[in-house]
Design a protein around this nucleic acid. Sequence first.
DNA 1: GTGGTCTAGACCACG
DNA 2: GTGGTCTAGACCACC
Lengths: 125, 125, 125, 125
Amino acid sequence: MNFDNNIPIYIQLVEYLKKEIILGKFKIGERLPSVRDLALLLKVNPNTMQKALIELENQKLIYTERTNGKYVTEDKKIIDKIKNNYAKELTNKYFFNMKSIGFNEKEIIDYIKELEANNGTIRMY
Amino acid sequence: MNFDNNIPIYIQLVEYLKKEIILGKFKIGERLPSVRDLALLLKVNPNTMQKALIELENQKLIYTERTNGKYVTEDKKIIDKIKNNYAKELTNKYFFNMKSIGFNEKEIIDYIKELEANNGTIRMY
Amino acid sequence: MNFDNNIPIYIQLVEYLKKEIILGKFKIGERLPSVRDLALLLKVNPNTMQKALIELENQKLIYTERTNGKYVTEDKKIIDKIKNNYAKELTNKYFFNMKSIGFNEKEIIDYIKELEANNGTIRMY
Amino acid sequence: MNFDNNIPIYIQLVEYLKKEIILGKFKIGERLPSVRDLALLLKVNPNTMQKALIELENQKLIYTERTNGKYVTEDKKIIDKIKNNYAKELTNKYFFNMKSIGFNEKEIIDYIKELEANNGTIRMY
DNA sequence: GTGGTCTAGACCACG
DNA sequence: GTGGTCTAGACCACC
């Protein structure tokens, strides 16, 4: 993980793990690695990881089984809903930002097509 | 201004002022309001505003005339370049994020069209 | 059993078993199921159940016959006394808490009557 | 503050502060003492206090003004709602517990009256 | 070994 | 000085 110094690490962890779950890299109902292991894996302090996981639990994406570990929710609807909200948020934010530097909707779409045509594919950020 | 508590204010100010300049709300060569006034206007501490303006100056979007105040650059190319970089960065970031939750390029474009069809317009974020 | 994650399980087991005895679901002098079976029944670890039973034994509600198992006390007075203490404790605690959010005694009693009137019965917690 | 060792301190802090707000000891819109001062006052670690305050903020009972401090919500409705939920929860829990040791509703109310008659007032817990 | 809590102490952004 | 974040490390309940 490369962390952006301007954003709290635990928030970046939340985003990262949320994506892993949405993408199914952590499957529905699957047990997550232990807090300590996740912390080691992503090279953060266990408390920081804990804080991120509490946030994911608040969002119902994971739940805790006492002394057994943490599991991805078994409710596919929650995951789908979060995925949809996320997509909508990203898209609205993108259009908002593009408009705020002077693009209108048609221009945005043209811009995307042009980028695609030039690159074959949109370059990864 | 509504600030996101998770990102330093001065960075959000940089983004905001950059957009104002790109959009021409602060025109080429125009004198900016005083640091003090800008701070009052956006309800931030003058120190914070000062920090943001230094960053804009580093990016050559504004320059300082000693004792006279700060001015928007007179070099239109710089502004255009920053606008283009910004658009490219926003678009790449958007595609990167959408892909990271499982959309491919075609699906992203379909998603945008669908949103547009439903809303008439993309809702402001 | 649904356990409250914020209170040690063995304490919740003590409360639960105490109630069962007070209610006579485990009768005076009756032999309790084995620790192992009780643990299975309530889906806790046998060690945890053992700890709860030790506490009940300290309170003289049960006693152990070596190699034979654990029995509910044969002294009805102990059970009655614990029931009365419990009722008093619950009631005092309830009044204390209600007062600590601004109800006086009259208001508490009015509140109870009102709830009863609305529900027919007080809803199970 | 006397803390119950069997319940996490931060939860007891949440309960305590919630009551103070409901009772109006911290008034609507009033600025709370700083996190550090509250921690000193109640003799807990600042991080523990911080955790409690985050929970209160999640419940919308307080809000944070960047660098200025934390304030009691200005929305009286939220406070009233929390007070009512709290009273209902306490009452339901009380009746549930009393029933679980063999009292029916009439007996509970008789019991309260009897306690009142004997004590003049219900003894503080 | 698992998650959860707590303390101590440092550092940062902002005013 | 304010809140917020992070690390390090200890201890606890439970399995």
